[in-house]
Lab assay of single mutants.
Amino acid sequence: MFKRLMMVALLVIAPLSAATAADQTNPYKLMDEAAQKTFDRLKNEQPQIRANPDYLRTIVDQELLPYVQVKYAGALVLGQYYKSATPAQREAYFAAFREYLKQAYGQALAMYHGQTYQIAPEQPLGDKTIVPIRVTIIDPNGRPPVRLDFQWRKNSQTGNWQAYDMIAEGVSMITTKQNEWGTLLRTKGIDGLTAQLKSISQQKITLEEKK
């Protein structure tokens, strides 16, 4: 169930391209415009997507990853294993993690069937560096609404905000991946996880038929 919630949630996290980005210092504006741009692209490019579902990787690479804190999220997933990894191991892992996100997020976007969304009203940021933004996803086919909290983090150097995690039903996506990959990290280390991520990233994206 959580895996499905995570995939549905990713439908609204794909941010804007650099040329049309919203105010990078306001995570609420980023979330709002990102959702609108993403849904528009999914709707307008269905012919290309249906002809070649792996085209979704391109959308992810162009529109999402430049505005997601990939390395920060990847380091959180590694936890204690990050500090013990060599620079070469980290570089290989982050490259594999990025390719994994292209496949995983692309597969999530393949679930698009006309969903709509509501974003919580903007709250004062103050001096906060981590801000959760509640998004409610509404399914046109009558499924119950899904309420999610996207975690946005302020870059201490640039002042810009980027998304790095999502919490559904009190469970963090980062925590879920830590639990899912924990045994592999304990037995085969970061190299074993890197190899698995490379394998997963090679899987073809498949479209979910409308139910």
Rank of each mutant, 00 (worst) to 15 (best):
A195N: 07
A96L: 10
R134F: 00
K37L: 14
P124C: 06
Y93Q: 03
A19Y: 03
F150A: 05
A21Q: 09
G192F: 09
Q157C: 05
P145K: 05
T86P: 08
S172Q: 00
Q178V: 02
I174Q: 07
F2V: 08
E180C: 03
S17P: 11
V12I: 11
G142P: 09
Y93V: 05
T194S: 13
Q62D: 10
I13R: 00
A14P: 09
H113M: 04
I59P: 04
Y82G: 01
Y81R: 07
Q107Y: 14
T175S: 05
T176Q: 00
I13M: 13
S199A: 12
Q178S: 15
W161E: 01
A21L: 07
I190P: 11
L197V: 13
K102L: 10
K198Q: 10
N160S: 09
A195P: 14
R50D: 11
E208G: 13
P47H: 13
Q202M: 09
G170V: 01
I138S: 08
N179E: 03
Q203L: 13
K83A: 09
G182W: 02
K3S: 02
F39C: 01
T129A: 10
N155Y: 01
A21K: 09
A14H: 07
V68N: 15
G159I: 06
M31H: 06
M173A: 00
L125T: 13
A95T: 11
F2L: 13
D165Q: 00
Q157R: 08
K102M: 09
E208F: 11
F94I: 09
N52C: 04
L78F: 04
Q69V: 02
S17F: 14
A120M: 10
P140W: 12
G74N: 00
T116W: 09
F97R: 00
T206H: 07
R4G: 03
G189D: 11
M31I: 03
A73E: 02
D165C: 02
L185M: 10
Q62G: 09
Q80W: 04
Y55Q: 09
S84W: 06
L193I: 14
L125H: 13
Y28S: 11
E208D: 10
V131C: 12
Q157S: 05
K210L: 08
G79S: 04
I59C: 09
F94N: 13
F97A: 05
E122T: 11
L109Q: 07
Y67S: 07
T194P: 09
Q151E: 09
Q202S: 13
M173P: 00
I133C: 12
T136P: 03
I190Y: 05
D40N: 10
K210G: 13
N26L: 09
E122W: 12
V12D: 00
L101R: 04
L5N: 00
D61Q: 14
G192L: 05
Q89D: 11
Q36S: 10
G126S: 12
Q69F: 01
R4M: 15
N26H: 07
E45I: 04
T116E: 15
Q48A: 11
P124D: 06
Q80M: 08
A163G: 12
A73D: 11
L101T: 15
A92I: 09
A22Y: 07
S17I: 07
F97P: 00
A18R: 12
S17L: 09
Q118A: 12
